[in-house]
Amino acid sequence: MLNPSVVPARSFLYRELQKRGAALGEVNGYGCAMRIGSDAAAEDAQARSLGLCDLTPLKRIGFKGWATAEWLIGQGATLEDAPNRVYPQDDGARIARLSKGEFVILGDLHLRSTLPDRLGIAWSINNASGCFRVPREDASAWLCLSGEHAGAMFAKVCGIDMRPQHFANNQIAQTSLARMNAIIMRNDRGATLAFDLVFDLASAVYLWNALLDAMTEFDGKPVGLEAVRGLG
C-alpha cells in the first residue's frame, strides 16, 4: 500500500480516506484511494446507490479569457456557445463551459484522455493571446457524487433542484453548496446518475465531511476510484 508521504502531490483528503480504510495507489503523482474497505462488490453497489469519491488526483486544467473558446477550438476541442454546459470530447475528456470565456477541462477516470496534458503543453502566455491558464489542478478539489440518491441528497446542501428530471445530464450549476461556492456538473457515468463537484481545494475537508453527513440519511458512503470507474 502506498504511503502518501512518499509522493509529492497530496490530496487534502488523504488522511480522511485513510481513516476510512482506503487503499491508496499512485495516480498522477498523488496517493489516490483506489478501494475503500475490503468488499469490492459492496463498494460498487454503494457507488450506484450513493457514493462520494475523491477525484482530486485526476487530470484537470482550466482556461479563461476573452479569446479562450477560439484557442480551445484551435486545439481541436469541440464546443458550443451555451455556457453552463459540459461538452464531452472524443477522447473521454469533458470540457465544462462556465461562461463565455471560462472553461474547466476534466480528464477521464482512466487517465486515457490526452486533452488536459496537450492543452497544458500547448499553452503559453506568449502564444495564446486572450487565453489564460487557470490552475484548476492546483486550486480546485474534485469529488464525484454518484448513485440514484444523489439528486435527492443535494436538497440538503444546495438550493437548486438537482433531481434528475429537473437537472439534465451535462448541465452545470455554479452555486452555493453547503455555503461554499462550487461548480456542480451532472456527468452520468454509464447508466448511473453522477455529479462532478469542483470547488476550493482549501475547503476540501470541510465539504467532504458536510456531504458525508448529509448522505447519512441515504446510507451514502465514500467509495474508491475503482468503484466509480466500474460505473462505466
Binding site: P83, N84, S99, G159, A173, Q174, T175, S176
Partner: peptide, 11 residues
C-alpha cells in the same frame, strides 16, 4: 444573465 434564476442569497 449568466446563471439563470437563483436565490437572492447567491448575490
Amino acid at each position: 444573465p449568466l446563471n439563470g434564476p437563483r436565490n437572492a442569497q447567491e448575490f
